[in-house]
């Protein structure tokens, strides 16, 4: 099918289909951007281009909620979690591939089992744990529970399997300690796995709303999506569309910028989140 030439009509039809699809995905974003720049009275009526453009809505967002602080919180939380997930996942994945030890298979099955547990089961008891540990309203609640990722371990395990044992054995003969082998020989050779795990983790934490809403009540510790969500739901936006949409744009921009630079990595990484089977 792939090799056959397509007739001109079929080709045109395919392109039309693809363009309509692309418009359906892009137009709402463009409209949102324009509406966030438009004067409030315009938003309800324009379809593509408002009568005038200004940053008024953005100024209001910055006046009403601590956007920069929330952005900083989100960065701190997402980067911390990403760092620890990469370190701990690679350690566990390394142990599972390069060592024979009692209980290795059991650990592997526990990882698979844990991955298939729906979060609905553990949401309430995890919250209670945060309360009892005194971690609510702190970065601890936003980060530590996410330090381990089953998928991350699986990805590193797959990758380490492809690295020849000789490399490992040779380093050992040279007298390297096992941790040194992992962090200075294996990991620098595992960039694709690191990128995949890092993007998946970062995106997952960056976009999460439910958990922050539950464990953080202090506005100064809120993550950006949480702050924007509560802004949109609560009364602070005062049903001003432009302000609401401007806050949504602010939330989208960092991710869209990152995506436009590393688009290929994003797509392959996030598609590999489906390789659980």
């Amino acid at each position: 099918m792939n090799l056959k030439r397509l007739s001109g009509i079929k080709k045109t039809a395919a392109y039309i289909f693809l363009f309509i699809g692309a418009a359906a995905f892009v137009y709402p974003f463009i409209w949102m951007l324009m509406a966030s720049l438009a004067p409030e009275k315009d938003i309800a009526s324009f379809a593509l281009w408002p009568t005038s453009i200004g940053l008024g809505s953005y100024v209001q967002v910055f006046e009403k909620i601590p956007v920069l602080r929330a952005f900083l919180n989100s960065m701190i939380v997402s980067l911390t979690v990403t760092f620890f997930v990469v370190v701990f996942s690679s350690m566990t994945g390394f142990a599972l591939t390069h060592y024979e030890f009692k209980g290795r298979d059991a650990v592997f099955y526990i990882i698979i089992f844990t991955m298939s547990l729906p979060f609905q089961l553990t949401l309430i008891p995890q919250y209670i744990l945060m309360v009892k540990l005194g971690w609510t309203d702190s970065y601890l609640a936003l980060t530590v529970p996410y330090f381990i990722s089953g998928l991350g371990i699986i990805i590193f395990r797959q990758y380490f399997k492809t690295i020849p044992r000789d490399l490992f054995d040779a380093a050992r003969i040279d007298g390297c300690s096992d941790l040194k082998i992992l962090f200075s020989i294996l990991l620098p050779n595992a960039k694709p796995a690191i990128i995949t795990v890092a993007i998946l983790t970062f995106m997952g934490v960056w976009n999460d709303v439910l958990w922050p809403i539950i464990v953080i009540r202090n506005e100064n510790l809120m993550t950006l999506p949480q702050l924007i969500t509560l802004f949109a739901v609560g009364g602070k936006a005062e049903s001003q569309l432009g302000v609401k949409l401007a806050s949504a744009v602010l939330l989208a921009v960092p991710v869209v910028v990152a995506y436009s630079f590393f688009q290929k990595y994003f797509i392959t990484s996030m598609a590999s989140s489906g390789m659980k089977e």
Binding site: A22, F29, W206, A232, A252, I267
Partner: peptide
């Protein structure tokens, strides 16, 4: 999956809403 041009661009566009936060999409 057909032999067409600009497939990478279309793929990237269709993927855009996936990376954006659900909150953004919902407000929009």
């Amino acid at each position: 999956n057909l032999p067409l041009r600009m497939l990478g661009v279309f793929r990237a566009i269709y993927f855009l809403p996936v990376v954006v936060s659900g909150v953004v999409v919902t407000i929009l």
